[in-house]
Design a binder for these strands. Structure first.
Length: 419
RNA sequence: GCGAGCUUAGCUCAGCUGGUUAGAGCACCAGAUUGUGGCUCUGGGGGUCACGGGUUCGAAUCCCGUAGCUCGCCCCA
């Protein structure tokens, strides 16, 4: 037996109804907010991600599926989608047509990590990007799109964590102050955090190590080091969230793992998920366009939701979408009658009625059994009597009653009953 | 990359401190029911006990190794 690659999962017919539900909700709410879908390649030149996500991040360091193609070019399976969106917006010059873009995407991503609950090597994200506005209103519009989706999915228990990382200048200044503070007690930090001191000090704020947490408790807060512009943006964003009745938890040590964020960052957490409790997150990335070499800065904000994690939440809430069953099963007792079976099925399908029948030449009893199991509403029986009299017998599989009608009347009866 | 746990029928699992033909429920197939599902009853098929080695008179059971899965750490959706 060949099994699937570690960290990949087959989505079987049984589970697909919940996926359909999630996908249609995403599409519907995106439309309500005026966002348009964009579909991008599964792989990009490696530099797309190196340049944006940040050389110091784990994603770039150890989690990317990177390979050389036959032309010797370094290619990477996308580990996230914001970078691809920005690349595409620049390449296709989308900002020339409209200075404000509302875009959403959906699809598989790839990260080479050890799988655990809610974490796979191939997984799916929905994301939305609002490109071209630096106003706090844009932040709130984006967050409110996320919340509308979450609510319509039926997720009622979740927290929205909120923080501001400030603009580049503030962040740089704060980073220095934080490093100075932490260096004083570096020997008490966990091994990982000691390494992060040079590499990515802000991440220490996120540490789960109890000793680190103790030290972080008294560390300087970024809020106290935001410059005028950054503070104003953050305060205004919070005011707007309040006025929209969006509840959030201010979390000064919320950092997020991608280097391109600035100002507003946020994250959605669920109590249903175990260790990987975040099912969505995002933030503002005002400096990313210029990092890509675009002619000017373009302010933008976006977020992504983890589809597998959302499905875990819905399943642990007991959400069971209805399976889509065929409506009619045609049973017959002689192979010669198959031409008739094909004719009936063709007529029903032309009338939008999902129809199946036996393809294993099994007994009538076995066929009715299969009909029952497949959840149809009607079984049509084509036996010797029916063929002789040019009739069809129709068995109602819900109440067990059965009637016989001349062929075309029987067909009409089924079509009308299933309308 | 690091740590812990698990692996017995298609699925969920039982199998006591090693003891003879390895079990149950569900699922599947057939019959009771001469063209007719669900409920009930009866019967049936299906297992290299993850793989490899070791200890022993004897291993699903104990020991070692390998693989896979799961859950954590790291990180993130």
């Amino acid at each position: 037996m060949i099994n699937s690659v570690r960290g990949t999962k087959d989505i079987l017919p049984e589970e697909l109804p919940i996926w359909y539900f999630v996908e249609s909700t995403l599409r519907k709410v995106s439309q309500l907010y005026g966002f348009r879908e964009i579909r991008l390649p599964i792989f990009e030149k490696t530099e797309v991600f190196q340049r944006s996500i940040g050389e110091a991040t784990d994603i770039v360091n150890k989690e990317m599926y990177t390979f050389l193609d036959r032309g010797g070019e370094s290619i990477t399976l996308r580990p996230e989608l914001t970078a691809s969106v920005v690349r595409s917006v620049i390449m296709n010059n989308l900002l020339a047509e409209s200075p404000l873009l509302r875009l959403w995407y959906y699809g598989p991503l790839f990260r080479y990590e050890r799988p655990q609950k809610g974490r796979l090597r191939q997984f799916h994200q929905y994301g939305a990007e609002l490109i071209g506005s630096n106003n706090p209103e844009a932040d709130v519009e984006t967050i409110s799109l996320a919340i509308e989706i979450i609510k319509r999915l039926g997720i009622n228990e979740f927290s929205l964590l909120l923080n501001s990382l400030g603009n580049q200048k503030s962040r740089q200044r704060y980073k220095q102050i934080l490093v100075d503070y932490l260096k004083g007690q570096a020997q008490n930090l966990s091994k990982e955090s000691q390494e992060r001191l040079n590499r990515n000090p802000l991440r220490i704020l996120d540490s789960k190590d109890p000793q680190d947490i103790e030290i972080i408790k008294n560390s300087p807060l970024i809020h106290d080091y935001l410059d005028e512009e950054s503070r104003e943006h953050y305060v205004k964003t919070k005011e707007l969230l309040d006025s929209c009745n969006i509840k959030y938890i201010e979390t000064p040590n919320l950092v997020r793992g991608l280097d391109y964020y600035s100002h507003t960052v946020f994250e959605f957490q669920s109590p249903y998920l175990g260790a990987q409790d975040s099912f969505g997150g995002g933030g503002r990335y005002n400096e990313l366009f210029s990092q890509f070499g675009y002619k000017n800065d373009v302010p933008a904000i976006g977020f992504a939701l983890g589809i597998e994690r959302i499905i875990l939440i819905l399943q642990s809430q007991g959400f069971k979408p209805q399976r889509e069953n065929p409506k009619v099963y045609i049973a017959y007792n002689k192979p010669e009658y198959l031409t008739k079976v094909f004719e009936v099925s063709r007529i029903l399908r032309q009338n939008e009625i999902p129809t199946i029948f036996d393809l294993q030449k099994r007994s009538l009893k076995a066929q009715l059994k299969e009909a029952n199991k497949s959840g149809v509403i009607f079984a049509i029986i084509i036996g010797d009597d029916e063929v002789a009299n040019e009739t069809l017998s129709i068995k109602n599989m819900i109440d067990g009653t059965q009637v016989s009608h001349p062929f075309s009347i029987a067909i009409d009866y089924i079509i009308n009953s299933l309308k």
